[in-house]
């Protein structure tokens, strides 16, 4: 397993090219081109702002202003997470031609899905930054140093899950549909469109079982909230979880590697 991981490292140039290809190909033939990477999160922000400021203004807690921006801090990484997993679950089947006919480490494909969406996430960051400056939230720029740490942990977690989902989808095609519903559920089980403080105390332990809760709270802490960064222990927990998930995901993928070409 670890030999294969090392082996995978040799294919980093391929992963880089595949990510570039993915980004290139995605917007080929569209008028706005890669501007969609900016426009997509903007539109999402617009929709949530509309819902929470016009349709149900009472739903937002008063101390989180502007609320749309608070949500955006969670939605942006969530989009990366969910899009990665959805794409990864389909990646081996979409690339079945490669898996069956070319000798290369197949985990390259789900990893590419995650990384391509990481790039989209990074495109969204300047927009987030722009609005944070515009609205002058209380967050101090010093806390931004936490951002790469949180991103790195999320990356590890997402790749682990992506490998798991990709391999399982090959064996059971229904994982794809299951996943779409599971992600919707998980979205609402994560304090993204509500602050975790708003959840009843009896529910909070359950929310904390969700690794993405820690990530979302950490993003909000680093980017939105005032005061010092207090989510260090949350990060530690999710970092440990991510390492376990990654190893488990890779282990499973590695075990299934030889039957993948037959089953896709």
């Amino acid at each position: 397993m670890f030999a294969n991981l090392r082996h995978l490292f040799r294919y980093r140039a391929l992963i880089r090219s595949l990510v570039a290809r993915d980004l290139n190909a995605r917007y080929r033939g569209s008028l706005l081109g890669f501007f969609w990477s900016f426009v997509n999160p903007l539109l999402l922000l617009l929709i949530y702002s509309f819902v929470f400021t016009v349709v149900m203004p009472g739903a937002r807690p008063a101390e989180l202003q502007p609320f749309a921006l608070f949500m955006f801090c969670g939605i942006l990484p969530w989009s990366w997470f969910s899009a990665s997993l959805l794409e990864a679950s389909n990646s081996l089947i979409a690339g079945s031609n490669l898996v069956k006919k070319v000798l290369f480490p197949a985990e390259v494909l789900p990893i590419t899905s995650v990384l391509a969406n990481l790039v989209h996430f990074c495109y969204g960051l300047p927009i987030l930054g722009l609005f944070l400056l515009l609205y002058d939230t209380q967050a101090s720029p010093v806390k931004l140093v936490w951002l790469p740490v949180i991103v790195a942990i999320q990356l590890l977690l997402t790749i682990g899950l992506a490998l798991l989902v990709a391999a399982l989808t090959v064996l059971f095609r229904d994982v794809r549909d299951l996943l779409a519903n599971l992600l919707t559920f998980l979205f609402f089980a994560t304090p993204i469109i509500y602050p975790i403080s708003l959840a009843p105390a009896s529910v909070q332990p359950y929310l904390n079982l969700n690794p993405f809760t820690h990530l979302a709270v950490a993003y909000q802490g680093a980017l939105f909230r005032g005061g010092p960064f207090t989510d260090g222990d949350r990060l530690l927990v999710v970092a440990a979880e991510s390492v376990v998930v990654f190893l488990a995901g890779y282990f499973l993928f590695d075990r299934l590697r030889d039957i993948l070409p037959e089953e896709v």
Binding site: N97, L98, K101
Partner: peptide, 12 residues
């Protein structure tokens, strides 16, 4: 050479 051009991406 099992299948030629396996893995070519049509858009690029």
């Amino acid at each position: 050479l099992i299948e030629l051009g396996a893995g070519f991406h049509p858009e690029i």
